[in-house]
Amino acid sequence: MAARMGVVVFPGTNCEYDAIRAVEALGGEADLVWHGTTEVTGYDALVLPGGFAHGDYLRPGAIARFSPVMAAVARFAADGGPVVGICNGFQVLTEAGLLPGALQKNRGLRFLCMPVAIRVESADSVLTEGVVAGTVLSIPINHFEGNYTCDEATLAQLRSERRVVLRYVDNPNGSVDGIAGICNEGRNVVGLMPHPERASDALLGSVDGLVLIEALLGAALRSRSLRCAPPAVA
């Protein structure tokens, strides 16, 4: 029984096939889901991959949040379905209000494209379950607007609820508290700037992203059984 992923494609998304390739390498199944779709059914998890949705016009994710598919993504998330936004997908999830905070231009105004060391801070999310906290992974970043920011109250809440899922070992972009990835209160929506799908084969220079994608596939299968479970017998 393979987990079935929906990979959401906006005009300007460009990492959708990387995401599918990584999912399939681990035995999962994946389909492209066009942003004009208003229903997402039959999927165990959704991935919002990287790219430049709607050209990143206005702000990254600012137009994508109004795409028809986003209401369906929000319903899927509200039902407990795993949703992961990678890079531009993270930006879309913050603009859509599914994750708190915002992603600003990098400190130093450089577009950053390089492998970085990422520390798993919490194993309690759909992207990190089963990964020992403290594990350091080498995963590429590829962004101009990855500088995570939020107000102090939000940061305090993220910390106290252990919702900072991933941190940079050496903060490359000025993100508050070195944040590379966070999750929502339900821990089923995760956004991260690094690209695990680009660290999914030795040919790419690292396989460290596989543990995250594997965790997501596991969460996806469990989510299916939870959401499709027959009513409990009284």
Binding site: L58, R59, A62, G101, C150
Partner: peptide, 8 residues
């Protein structure tokens, strides 16, 4: 609703 992101 559109032009500004109220978070920042």
């Amino acid at each position: 609703r559109v032009l500004a992101n109220p978070v920042i």
